[in-house]
Simulated scan of single mutants.
Amino acid sequence: MINNASISNPQALVGVSEVSDWLTIDEEHLKAFAHASYLEGDRVDLTPSRNHALGPQLVDGFLLLSLLVYFDFASQTLRTEGGYGFNYGVDRVRFTQPVYVGQRVRLHRKIAEIKQKSPTRALVTLDTELEVEDSGKTAMVARWLLMLVDGEGEA
């Protein structure tokens, strides 16, 4: 974990990497995501012959992308006392391998770049890869941008 002391020299953090614990993708969360994103049978046709060729157990790529936030809260790579970060955007997202309900995934992330935007804000670029257990394959690659804010400094 990166703490306040290391924020004083942000360039020293470039290259720091971390691997998360495994997370099992379950049916309950897949259904909740479908509901939250309006992908329900009474709204759209999700039959395998139409829009869902890999079957109903396929995990939506955007659900996988949303797991970046889960993994960040589960084990924060960047944490500062009195500070916070927020999602600034995502670049170069690719879904490279299907993931199905019941499979386990984990996130590999590395700090690729940090740009000081102001005395109290830094734009952090994380290179992330979502690995599928037992296959050794990467299911998603994304470059995630976070704005790290010194909340006490801005108060």
Rank of each mutant, 00 (worst) to 15 (best):
S8H: 14
S8L: 13
P10W: 02
Q11D: 11
Q11H: 11
A12E: 10
L13V: 04
V14K: 00
V14G: 00
G15E: 09
G15N: 11
V16C: 08
S17H: 08
E18W: 12
E18D: 10
V19F: 03
D21Y: 04
W22M: 03
L23F: 06
T24M: 02
T24I: 02
I25Q: 03
I25T: 01
I25R: 03
E27T: 11
E28K: 11
E28V: 14
H29C: 12
L30E: 00
L30P: 00
K31Q: 11
F33G: 02
F33D: 06
A34M: 13
H35T: 15
H35K: 15
A36G: 03
S37L: 08
Y38M: 14
L39W: 03
L39P: 00
E40V: 15
E40S: 12
E40C: 14
R43T: 10
R43Q: 12
R43W: 05
D45A: 07
D45C: 06
T47E: 08
T47Q: 09
S49H: 13
S49C: 09
R50D: 08
R50H: 13
R50L: 06
R50G: 03
N51S: 14
H52E: 10
H52K: 13
A53I: 08
A53M: 10
L54P: 06
L54E: 10
G55P: 00
P56T: 14
P56G: 01
P56V: 13
Q57P: 00
Q57M: 06
V59H: 03
V59Y: 04
D60T: 06
L64T: 09
L65W: 04
S66E: 05
S66D: 01
L67T: 10
L67Q: 09
L68F: 00
V69W: 11
V69A: 12
Y70D: 07
Y70I: 03
Y70N: 08
D72P: 02
D72V: 15
D72S: 15
D72Q: 14
F73H: 05
A74I: 04
T77F: 01
T77E: 01
L78C: 12
R79P: 02
R79C: 07
T80I: 13
E81A: 13
E81S: 14
E81M: 08
G82R: 01
G82A: 03
G83H: 04
Y84I: 13
G85S: 13
G85W: 15
F86Y: 14
F86D: 03
N87W: 08
Y88H: 07
Y88K: 09
Y88T: 05
G89R: 00
G89S: 01
V90Q: 02
V90C: 05
D91R: 10
D91C: 05
R92M: 13
R92L: 14
V93N: 03
V93F: 00
R94D: 04
R94I: 04
Q97I: 03
Q97F: 07
V99P: 08
V99C: 07
G102V: 10
Q103F: 09
Q103A: 08
Q103M: 04
R104L: 01
V105G: 02
V105E: 02
V105C: 02
V105W: 05
R106T: 08
L107W: 00
L107N: 04
H108A: 01
R109G: 03
R109Y: 00
R109I: 10
K110I: 06
I111V: 15
A112M: 10
A112G: 11
E113H: 11
K115P: 00
Q116M: 11
Q116C: 10
Q116E: 14
K117M: 13
R121L: 06
R121A: 13
L123Q: 02
